[in-house]
Amino acid sequence: MLKRIHHTAIICSDYSISKNFYVNVLGLKIINETHRIERNSYKLDLEIGDSQIELFSFENSPERASYPEARGLRHLAFEVENVEESKSWLERKGVEVEPVRIDETTGKKFTFFSDPDGLPLELYEAK
Results as ranks from 00 to 15, higher is better:
55 L>H: 01
22 Y>I: 04
16 S>N: 10
13 S>F: 07
77 A>S: 15
112 F>W: 05
63 E>S: 14
67 Y>I: 15
12 C>R: 08
37 I>K: 15
37 I>F: 09
18 S>A: 14
92 R>E: 15
62 P>N: 09
71 R>T: 13
122 E>T: 02
98 E>V: 00
67 Y>T: 13
46 L>W: 08
122 E>H: 01
66 S>A: 09
90 L>E: 03
32 N>W: 04
105 T>H: 08
60 N>C: 03
75 H>E: 10
66 S>G: 07
109 K>W: 04
126 A>G: 12
10 I>E: 00
21 F>T: 05
33 E>G: 03
40 N>L: 07
25 V>N: 03
97 V>G: 08
74 R>M: 12
73 L>H: 00
100 V>M: 05
11 I>K: 12
13 S>Q: 15
32 N>F: 06
40 N>F: 02
32 N>T: 05
25 V>S: 04
19 K>S: 11
21 F>M: 04
34 T>P: 00
118 G>A: 10
118 G>N: 10
114 S>F: 06
12 C>Q: 09
37 I>V: 14
60 N>F: 07
63 E>G: 05
34 T>I: 14
33 E>L: 09
100 V>D: 02
21 F>K: 03
41 S>V: 01
24 N>M: 04
13 S>A: 12
98 E>Y: 09
39 R>C: 02
30 I>Y: 02
112 F>A: 01
65 A>F: 10
66 S>T: 11
71 R>Y: 09
33 E>Y: 02
2 L>Y: 12
39 R>W: 13
90 L>V: 01
23 V>D: 03
101 R>V: 04
122 E>V: 01
20 N>F: 14
117 D>L: 02
96 E>D: 07
116 P>C: 04
17 I>Q: 13
19 K>P: 05
114 S>H: 10
2 L>E: 07
75 H>A: 05
56 F>D: 03
40 N>C: 05
9 A>V: 03
69 E>I: 08
72 G>T: 10
98 E>M: 11
4 R>T: 13
85 E>I: 04
35 H>G: 00
33 E>V: 05
69 E>M: 10
28 L>V: 06
101 R>Y: 08
47 E>R: 14
43 K>V: 11
102 I>F: 01
43 K>H: 09
